[in-house]
Amino acid sequence: MATVTETKGWTRNDMAARAARELRDGYYVNLGIGIPTLVANNIPPGMTVTLQSENGMLGIGPFPYEDEVDPDLINAGKQTISELPQSSYFDSAQSFAMIRGGHIDLAVLGGMEVSEKGDLANWMVPGKMIKGMGGAMDLVAGVKKIIVVMEHVSKDGSAKFIPECTLPLTGKNVVDMIITDLAVFQRPDHSSPFKLIELAPGVTREELRAKTTAQYVE
């Protein structure tokens, strides 16, 4: 039997690139840890996008060269970074004033579960070690548009886009767009249902239905 090379679904970087298509010139953006961080590598050339780090910086630069590493210059994931000519620094209260106050245009976050009503769970699994929510609850409460990027199903194959979250919530009715390795869902406002707007290569509507327990519009 011939081995067929399966080119189905999106890779982690494809998902980040898809999220990057939601960027607009002049946007101020906060990127979560994991796949969302990869969005920074996919900003279209010529577009000005300013990245915010919630520990107190606007204008995140690339990772530093070895001889530029500075312990006083890190991102929210505690990785060393560099500054740009247009960067600015501020304290944590100011940082979250701009987040909570609706001044950030877009946040791209990871997710464990998203409900069909736009609830997000991504900070805690009861019974396991709880590390804390960090800035995620503030981001989903205050940022104008929230994109969740996650694998479509969990490691054991169970659906992650579901009718009701089973895990403790990060925010209620906060998600605007979901990008998985299989599809993209979007809703125009927080009282509308999610609509399937894109399928990843090789993914059928039937397969997506089978792997999703949430209600969505096709």
Partner: peptide, 23 residues
Amino acid sequence: PQGTLAERMRAGGAGIPGFYTKT
């Protein structure tokens, strides 16, 4: 939440005993 913690400190220092937040 991180922003709530920062604001709780800021508020405490600014003589504000409590505040309302969406977070």
